[in-house]
């Protein structure tokens, strides 16, 4: 309460008032994080394509909707565009032998031009909820929340099913042990390409949702999406693990990832409410990701630390 009083202008009610919209937006990031989860956790690839394909999704959706296309068909088209982006990264990586990270960077770089071209070479394009029927909009937060939950549950269920099938299991094996996978007859290159395509389709789909929600597509809307996605994945996993403990199964894990996006965005809301300069958000996000990636590592190291062992040994040699 100290800070609140000291700062005077801060009102808890204002903060709570931002939460519904924060949850809706967080859910859209969470859906994107499902895409990141596929590459990062299943294929063991940090795919930087997403910064570009998120914008691609937004650009395609907005351009199609403003030219009279149904918003759901526009979202489907956005997903296909993202799929093609992932396909490109996959082919650069598996057919041309370019390291996965660099392949993603190259596609993302190229997408900047392509995204501009999609938007008729302007840096942003508006799509007004007054003129078009949109899947989600910040103007109708309750409806957006319901739609968001339905979409998230549908996608989580679809992924849960897919990764339980023979094909999905083979993809999990590919990321976990490529040598074994090859010996078992799995074409690991095609698995990687399919995984990257699937992942970026999801990312572009959420980009299309985000553009509708905020009412415009912007050439920079995907900048840092990969970091936000990673934040959602690991924050979600940590909280999911804490909440569900032993009962954590794969379905719970996927739901955690979506929740991770929501938690991430609520933290952003709090930061904005604390009047932290919004330009500092990226620094903050990066720090969150570093902390969550580092803590498990440091914990494991502290259990087996040379310093500690050295100190303990003094008892014996003294």
């Amino acid at each position: 309460m100290h800070i609140l009083l000291a700062r005077g202008g801060l009102n808890v009610m204002t903060l709570l008032g931002t939460f519904p919209s924060g949850i809706a937006q967080g859910m859209i990031w969470g859906i994107m994080a499902l895409g990141v989860y596929i590459t990062f956790r299943m294929l063991d690839i940090a795919d930087l394509t997403v910064d570009g394909s998120f914008t691609t999704g937004g650009a395609v959706a907005v351009m199609l909707i403003t030219s009279g296309t149904n918003c759901w068909i526009a979202l489907a088209a956005a997903s296909v565009a993202g799929l093609l982006a992932g396909l490109t990264t996959g082919i650069l990586h598996t057919r041309l032998g370019i390291p996965a990270i660099l392949s993603g960077i190259l596609t993302q770089f190229a997408l900047y031009s392509i995204n501009l071209a999609i938007m008729g070479f302007s840096a942003n394009k508006a799509v007004s909820v007054d003129r078009y029927v949109l899947a989600v909009s910040s103007r109708y937060i309750n409806a957006a929340l319901i739609t968001g939950v339905i979409i998230a549950v549908a996608l989580v269920s679809a992924l849960y099913w897919y990764f339980g099938t023979e094909h999905g299991s083979a993809m999990r094996a590919t990321g976990n042990n490529p040598d074994m996978s090859k010996a078992l007859g799995i074409n690991i290159n095609s698995m990687k390409v399919i995984g990257l395509a699937l992942s970026n389709a999801l990312v572009a789909f959420s980009g299309g949702l985000m553009a509708q929600y905020q009412g415009f597509a912007d050439i920079n809307m995907g900048r840092g999406a990969i970091v936000i996605g990673l934040a959602a994945v690991i924050v979600g996993e940590v909280f999911g693990e804490m909440l569900l403990k032993k009962r954590m199964n794969f379905y719970g894990r996927l739901l955690s990832v979506v929740s991770g996006g929501i938690i991430y965005y609520l933290v952003v809301c709090v930061a904005l409410w604390l009047k932290i300069n919004s330009n500092m958000l990226k620094l903050m996000t990066a720090i969150i990701v570093v902390i969550f990636l580092a803590v498990p590592y440091l914990q494991s190291v502290s259990h087996a630390s040379f310093k500690k062992a050295g100190k303990n040994s003094l008892k014996e040699v003294r």
Binding site: Y162, G164, T165, E166, H167, G168, S169, A170, A173, S181, A183, L184, G185, I186
Partner: peptide, 17 residues
């Protein structure tokens, strides 16, 4: 074991285990 039981077979969308 389920992955190995399908060694060399096309991986379909049937349940994996």
């Amino acid at each position: 074991l389920a992955l190995a039981a399908r060694r060399g077979k096309p991986r379909s969308l049937r349940w994996g285990f």
